[in-house]
Amino acid sequence: MIDVQNVSKTFYVPHIVKALRNVTCKVDFGEAVVVIGPSGSGKSTFLRCLNRLEVAEEGHIYVDGIDILDRKTNINKVRAEIGIVFQSFNLFPHKTVLQNVTLAQTVVRKRSKEEAKNKAMALLEKVGIPEKANVYPDQLSGGQQQRVAIARSLSMDPKVMLFDEATSAIDPEMIREVLNVMQTLASEGMTMVVVTHEMGFAREAADRVIFMDGGRIVEEGSPEEVFDNPVEERTQKFLSQII
């Protein structure tokens, strides 16, 4: 489903930072992959490269067989198939919850208003806040906003969902409700790449865990392998610090 080959990425502004160094990995259809690692390890950059929000300089990235770094690829079409959920939600503040979820459906997928609305209501039902449909985002809690953001991404019927530290900016009490939605998605067989600091979620929902540090994939394996018997010293150190 996702095939990343030898991808490197350097930021030049404001400092020269090698964010990714020769990253290679694969995500299979229906797999939930959790990426963990210290801050600055390149895990968010890795995720953002997958829908070309950051353009990788070297290597190849194939999503559903399409080379997304090829100049001839229509990136808008690819992005419509890849949902991404951000740490800071990024809901559209001038639109209601319902409009947030219907906008891309009507503009990108060219669905009728009626169809988009039905789809949106079904998704809001799924994430558990249908009663907030006509409310503006600033009237919602962080957890509710993030669930709307998830519904917004799902409204495009994506083949892959990316989560970029989706629970990091949410009150501890509200994290559970978001993780539950993500867990449901994983159990339904959605292909997911999740960058997170929630080790509990990683253990429960992940099919595979990737540990990154210094722009490299240090260790990779099933949750049991990585969490209980880490091979690399760096992984052991990281896990001992956080648990």
Partner: peptide
């Protein structure tokens, strides 16, 4: 993030 959110939904 507003532009990123809109573009990542596939909008031009």
């Amino acid at each position: 993030g507003q532009m990123e959110a809109a573009r990542s939904l596939g909008m031009t």
